[in-house]
């Protein structure tokens, strides 16, 4: 019995210690916002590897998800003679939910895992250590630009995702299934609010925050062996995905009720 308590205590303490380390990393990443002279090139480079290289997967997924939404939505709505509502249905689904959530999940898989593995490998090959010995703070030089690039890129990717998705639903709904083009857009404009875009963006920024935070923390905190890196990468993606879905529910409950 006492052994059980001991185990529970051990696990709790370990969890708290992990959380503390994660908070320290977060704090120093936030306080080391990239400055113009040295930070800017690093930031741009990370925007490239985190944002630009994620463009393809975001655009392709957005297009297909928009097209599938239009196809499924049309099938249901036409039974009630309400296919005019296809536009707002697709647009609201994308802006409020699918845009931020699916982008965050894809981002965790594409960019988050890469961040974790890269930082983990830098740790395993003593690059972070040697940086520290050169009196260069790896949190400032390595972690901060990656964190800020992730925070900057994901909302943009989410907006691109939603836009491409709406374009895809337009392709299927209007061009293929014959919903009137004027109706499609005007009903959408009538029902979609600027607040929906704002709320979607708030979600995207929050998800970007947690996904990038988890990714850089898992990399920085990993056990510096091949097994440790692979485990950190997996748990980075899994935890980021779960946190995004849970956070999405909380944010939705706050925003739309």
């Amino acid at each position: 019995m006492i052994k059980r308590f001991g185990q529970l205590g051990h696990t709790t303490l370990e969890l708290l210690a992990g959380l503390g380390r994660a908070l320290i990393i977060l704090l120093s990443a936030i306080t080391h916002m990239p400055n113009i002279r040295k930070g800017y090139p690093l930031f741009v480079k990370q925007v490239y590897s985190v944002g630009v290289l994620s463009l393809i997967i975001i655009i392709v997924s957005g297009l297909f998800i928009g097209m599938v939404l239009a196809l499924q939505g049309h099938g249901v709505l036409i039974d009630y003679g309400a296919e005019a509502s296809l536009g707002p249905m697709v647009a609201l689904s994308l802006l409020r939910e699918l845009g931020p959530v699916v982008t965050a999940l894809l981002f965790a898989g594409r960019a988050g895992s890469a961040l974790t593995a890269e930082i983990g490998l830098m740790k395993a090959t003593e690059q972070l250590s040697s940086m520290e010995m050169m009196a260069v703070d790896p949190l400032r030089r390595v972690i901060a630009p990656r964190f800020w690039a992730g925070l900057f890129c994901m909302p943009l990717l989410a907006a691109i995702f939603s836009m491409v998705g709406i374009f895809g639903s337009h392709l299927v709904g209007v061009v293929w299934l014959g919903v009137d083009q004027g109706t499609f857009w005007s009903v959408m404009q009538g029902d979609v609010d600027f607040a929906d875009i704002v709320n979607g963006t708030i979600k995207a920024v929050s998800f970007a925050f947690v996904v990038t935070w988890i990714a850089v923390f898992k990399g920085y905190d990993c056990v510096p062996t091949s097994e440790g890196i692979s485990r950190a990468t997996t748990s980075s993606v899994v935890q980021a995905s779960l946190v995004v879905l849970g956070l999405d529910f909380i944010l939705t409950a706050i925003m739309f009720t």
């Binding site: 463009l55 907006a159 691109i160 404009q189 009538g190 600027f194 875009i197 963006t201």
Partner: peptide, 19 residues
């Protein structure tokens, strides 16, 4: 990429949510 992202925001704001 940044231009595309901003364009996406603007077009969402103007075309999708006019009202």
């Amino acid at each position: 990429f940044v231009a595309l992202g901003i364009a996406a925001f603007v077009s969402l704001a103007l075309n999708v949510a006019n009202s």
